[in-house]
Write a protein that binds this DNA or RNA. Sequence first.
RNA 1: CGGGGCAUAGCGCAGCUUGGUAGCGCGCUUGGUUCGGGACCAAGAGGCCGCAGGUUCAAAUCCUGUUGCCCCGACCA
Length: 566
Amino acid sequence: MLVSKLLGERYKEKPGEAITPSHIYLLRGGYIRQMSNGIYSMLLPAKKVTRKIEQIIREEMDAIDGQEVLFPVVLPAELWQESGRWDSVANRLIRFKDRIGHDMLLGMTHEEAAVHLARSEVKSYSKYPFMIYQIQTKFRDESRSRGGLIRVREFTMKDAYSFHTSQEDLEQYYERAFQAYHRIFRRVGIPEVVSVASDNGMMGGKVSHEYMLLTDSGEDTIVLCKDCGYKSNMEVAVSKIAHNICEEQAIEEVYTPDIKDIDSLANFFKVSPSRLMKAAVFAVENSKRPLVVFLRGDLQVNEAKLRNAVRANVFPLTDYENVNLCFGFIGAYGLDAEGVDIVYDISLQGEKNLIGGANKLGYHLEGISIDRDIKPDNYADVAKVNEEDTCTKCGGKLTLSRGIEVGNIFQLDTKYTAGMNMTFTDIDGKQKHPVMGCYGIGVGRLLASIIEARHDEYGPIWPMSVAPWQIHICLLNSENEYNRQVGFNLYEKLGKTYDVLMDDRNVAAGTQFADADLLGIPLRIVVSKRNLEKGELELVTRDRKIKKNVKLEDIEKELREMMNEM
RNA sequence: CGGGGCAUAGCGCAGCUUGGUAGCGCGCUUGGUUCGGGACCAAGAGGCCGCAGGUUCAAAUCCUGUUGCCCCGACCA
């Protein structure tokens, strides 16, 4: 490919809408163009990187006995009604009617399609286990796309589905997939991706892991323990609470006019917020009863954990009408529990002498001891982990980090196979539901993540394995006939073995170098008058670690050696 | 869904307060001089000033509405 023919303008200045590095370089380097919110077109450089990423994924999926298939983008509503997700994930599902009036949808994930295919093709245990996967377009009507390709509405995804005759078999396969994923991230050049425990969310099922690239541009919060290696998504992270040591006291009512929030309350009593008991009120999906969560004043409710604890979707309460609670002064002691549901966070367990609301306008209570005064039947862990909390596994200090989720793997149990009545005949002649696993990687997001992890102030630094081209020839002084000849000879010769891009434009050297940096190709050969006078070419790596002159006749040998090391 | 911001040439921006011929830099075209980190000179092309109403002799500018985009939060395989 010649740069003079390559489509995609490269910008000197940062486009106004871009904030994150990958977004900036994808736009500046002429990789992508936006069409609409969360919807992008890709130009050749991005498409080439995509192809290489996909090929690596394909090889690793094949290596764990995957069979590549292709499901339709447009799916009939019946299929999703069968699994129940036509309604349950309605918020991000694009639904429409076809010409005849049938309800249809754009696939946002393909568990249903996979079960639909597999249940009619596989009837005997003897074909088990098996895994099918595809690399294909998904559409999710995200309420908020952001960061260029990091979070989009339409994107390419590799999604894989495995089927097993037993949970044990799934677990064995899950381990293979787990390892395959780490190989994929290593091969595309970001071995630092970590796997973390995660929430199953709308997918259902039991065990799941997310693969995270830790970076400030990420949108997930990850809890890490440097001592024992504990890694978890904030959504399911746990920590050990340091309890206060206090003497019990008699309960006393204190007049606290206009003091409704934790900070001013702690200030008023001159105590740390951990000595307070606060109430957070939620609405629960399909329930008319408000849910009151009591937890220690220094903690926040983790809505994902609360959702799992009450097995229903929860939302912060916004409609205060018809709720019989004394907002600002809600307390666990003396609360009229009629008409409300209550959850006690484990942070309260055993606490003594707390300060909490008196359920009476303008008053708080001092001296509440949980075991003496409240006696909850049970506790739930629904609080957010904080930086510096204690690790439950090893007692070390936890740290928080932002991360981009580049992939995930789930054990789904029989949620879909039972829900959609997929059976096989087992060795004992009985009909059973297979257990299922699913495994996703967002290809475009992975591409963006590689830039997040591998760039400098001039542009992306592509790893050789996914670089749009392997070699970038900067043909300087191309108006000079001899230079031009050397350049084009080199271009043709190397093109037989490598994927080569040559900048044949008659522009200033600086322009060529700046554009080369934006294209981020790992190896660069500079053909210039200066070097050719000595019969040499200059060989530079994009990461600037190597820069040397090579005799014209030695270039192929030199390239072979460098290529082996990259 | 809540909060904030922005829409003027391919990109980055000014002009709007106080209405009066649509501007600058980069990029693009042509010619010339240059030629190792975004060079210089000259001459050009390129605009429904997001869209729709309104006020006015006159609207990029004032008013109303609307749409799109970005950021933060909520949500999220």
